[in-house]
Design a protein around this nucleic acid. Sequence first.
DNA 1: CGGTTTATTGAGAGGGCTCAAAGATTGTGG
DNA 2: CCACAATCTTTGAGCCCTCTCAATAAACCG
Lengths: 249, 249
Amino acid sequence: MKPDLRLFADRLTNRSRLSEVEVRAVLDLPARMLKVAARRDFVRLGETVDHVSVVAEGVVARFGQNSEGERQISAFHIAGDAPDLHTVVVPSDTVPLLALSEATILSIPHTALRVVAARYPAVAEAFWRDCSIDAAITANWVLNVGRRDAQTRIAHLLCEMAVRYNAHVGGGEVSYSFPLTQLQLADAVSMTSIHVNRSLRALAEQGLVTFSGGRVRIPDWKRLVHRGEFEDDYLQAGWQPGNRLRIMD
Amino acid sequence: MKPDLRLFADRLTNRSRLSEVEVRAVLDLPARMLKVAARRDFVRLGETVDHVSVVAEGVVARFGQNSEGERQISAFHIAGDAPDLHTVVVPSDTVPLLALSEATILSIPHTALRVVAARYPAVAEAFWRDCSIDAAITANWVLNVGRRDAQTRIAHLLCEMAVRYNAHVGGGEVSYSFPLTQLQLADAVSMTSIHVNRSLRALAEQGLVTFSGGRVRIPDWKRLVHRGEFEDDYLQAGWQPGNRLRIMD
DNA sequence: CGGTTTATTGAGAGGGCTCAAAGATTGTGG
DNA sequence: CCACAATCTTTGAGCCCTCTCAATAAACCG
């Protein structure tokens, strides 16, 4: 049975305007489903890939490592995301991918994606747009890692993920499932797991966030947003159906 | 007189396969030329742009800033680069741009770019590919800032720029013009200009690099590459005319 | 229930920062 | 072409945030 690509199609149509035919073409893409265990690298550095991975379930990380083997996570990817969609046009730029929790991955061959992109330029445009938004997130990550102290950095990241999970709507307590270990969080924010632990405690003592049992709880959204210097524009979270751009006729 | 877009077209054809007609379409794009003084922000945060900036001369930086106004440069752009090409598909994601040296910018309207992209899907593909390579560079920047110490970080950056300037070919002394102040360099590598100064001196004392008078000199390329843990694959520097990909028919 | 991974806490060290000030360079106007 | 101003570079001293090393407690997993 063919895996369901609806999540991926939804992600695209949330950001781009696609016709029914185009959406159908995406949904009809061939895909192989694979379950990946937590803490498993399922795309290795240097490996040549001929397919794109779409996250259907779980949390996936893109990372790099220095010569000592220390890791730096440069992006988190959640359901709907295609961490290496760019390999459709730059196949040699393989990025290592790691499942942080148990994850379900849908694997779509480059060949099939290229056929659809060539046939439906608006789909190619949607891919391009997706890659660009990802890039904006990464650029923001540089700022976060480079110019914010430990607590602010963590707060910022937890805000970002709240918005990406769309968990920040409504006014009350914000909460979402985020099944990472503190060590993995440390690899994302460029700190030691020990210092992550201490910073997390400090944030909790101020009543700002709680991170435990794989769940993030934010009692007062606005307060954390302020603490983390968080502004969500770069996520394009406010995209309305009306102002979705389409350049392909 | 219309500014010459040859540099931009070259950049595209170095990475993508375009027909003569497509190249011509790029060259015929309308453009306005502007000279920007050094240390001048010529695209401000929040400002809505309706054009793309192409660097014709000089060095330009993409940056973000934290709540204290401290800056973090997330990308350098040199002649041929289009720092905000992605705004063609994500116009609301304006990135602040700063001229580090006196620079010449060619400004191309979104509308014109969109017409060409729609008419020539292969050009759209080339744009997408360009954005993707930029994104790969940014992802690497995260690793650099997050997981490398001062000297290694600087060494890595100076290697990257050498390759992007294509100054690393041949075996002898590598050298290129890189007219930044140490403060600007500090904003790129997330350090204090004071610490940049000291690290630079340390690197010089080891005979690895010299950074002064707006010029970088590398006596022994391989040694600096090693010191900076630099691997150039992410830059797609090895792209041969033969293996340029084209997905649009 | 035992074994492994993860979280937590303590003590000490260090890389990079802050504050401060003196040189060197660059640019500008007269 | 000089003089002055502004910017940039360099150096010193002390401190602090985050890391390292080490050990225990807790949670998870089969």
